[in-house]
Design a protein around this nucleic acid. Structure first.
Lengths: 218, 218
DNA sequence: CTCATAAACTAGCGGTGTAAGTTTTCATTC
DNA sequence: GAATGAAAACTTACACCGCTAGTTTATGAG
């Protein structure tokens, strides 16, 4: 088959199908040949639209990140904005858990990830946080969200209770974790996020507000 | 070469060499043939000692996790124990950053990870936290540590400042992040951990201590 | 109309994890 | 002490992987 009258492939179509395959069968099951087959095409044809497989994965990761809502930083107080962002971020990642291991390894050159970092950083600085602090806060929350989406605590446990009872006395209930995976993970996220934000709020009143009120124009 | 008089391979030796190769060249560069070559042996010989490559990686991940110190839960108050554990955990992971993406995906059947979870959970319950809360706290801190070791916030940024200045106004300084990677990551970790623990301490006084003092035997 | 480019193809390279079967040595049992 | 079965190396080979090179033809620009 030579060049067709209308292109069979588009970047968006490739990314969409790749995400669907990753969602269905996992990151490891995505090969260029399988992806191409799902698009009705031979493997190397993909390279007319992307230079490498990683470039495809970057695009997939970017569409996932693109679903994160950072609009709160434009309209709400910084604490509410942080909370809303963190939950939106988590929802975006847990909607496609299989891509998270790839996605979690840095914003790189992915536009959506950079736009997100920009919005968070800008919002915090506007709220009065010192730039270095704003960077740290954004990073810390990213760590927490990515970690929670990546390493589902509960998913890792095994169904067999005997395995735990023998050697890990306190984990005797651990096999039940597998049953309640989602609620454990969400509960842990909620608790951790609240604690984090609570601590940040205390830090804010301790440093930012104090400094501002000490200034002549505070 | 038939069976040698003294075995050329041991599980420990395979794991040790695998970790060294991963540290040196990255997770993606570890193949069974390269690993075997480094051990002076042919690729398939590894399968006399491990059933799959993943089993080797599990063992590698377990030795890394094994370096985490949870002794604080036996001797210190829960808050100090949590802080010490988190820092030890982070040090263990950042000492071998290339294995973290694999390691972060659940404790699975890895003994060291299970022992760690057991120690943390047991320590928190002993301190008075309700079991469900203890599970959440352990998971939340694991999220944070794993996320911080995995997705170095700063590493992902690129050196070229022009890339950011044009589209992401607040990230104009972002290219400097690459220079200060380690300090940014450590600073973000320190800030986030302090905030998290501060929030947990507040939660503790609000719930655990209140409940205990309300009981007849409190 | 010309012609460079685009977008599909086929063929193939070097690499991957691992299964299968072979050979020899070690450890155990009668 | 001979017999035997497991252990631990080997070679060969399979199916798959990401990707390169070169081919063919349709498209769109000058």
């Amino acid at each position: 088959m030579p060049r067709p009258r209308r292109p069979l492939l588009t970047r968006d179509g490739i990314v969409e199908t790749a995400l669907a395959l990753i969602d269905a069968d996992g990151l490891g099951a995505l090969s260029t040949r399988r992806l191409a087959a799902a698009l009705g095409v031979q493997g190397p044809s993909l390279y007319n639209h992307f230079a490498t497989k990683d470039e495809i994965l970057d695009a997939v990761a970017d569409t996932v990140t693109g679903a994160v809502d950072t609009s709160g930083f434009a309209s709400r107080d910084w604490l509410t904005a942080l909370r809303d962002w963190a939950w939106s971020y988590r929802r975006a990642l847990t909607a496609h858990p299989n891509i998270v291991p790839y996605l979690a390894q840095g914003p790189g050159r992915r536009p959506a990830a950079l736009a997100m970092a920009d919005a968070v950083y800008g919002g915090l600085v506007r709220a009065g946080w010192p730039p270095a602090r704003a960077t740290h806060i954004g990073a810390a929350l990213r760590y927490f969200v990515a970690g929670s989406a990546l390493g589902s605590f509960a998913r890792g446990f095994v169904e067999d209770p005997e395995l735990y009872a023998a050697h890990y006395p306190h984990l005797r209930q651990a096999h039940r974790l597998a049953e309640h995976q989602q609620s454990v993970d969400e509960g842990a996220f909620a608790l951790g996020l609240d604690a984090l934000l609570h601590g940040l709020a205390a830090e804010y009143t301790r440093t930012v507000e104090t400094v501002e009120s000490a200034r002549p124009n505070g």
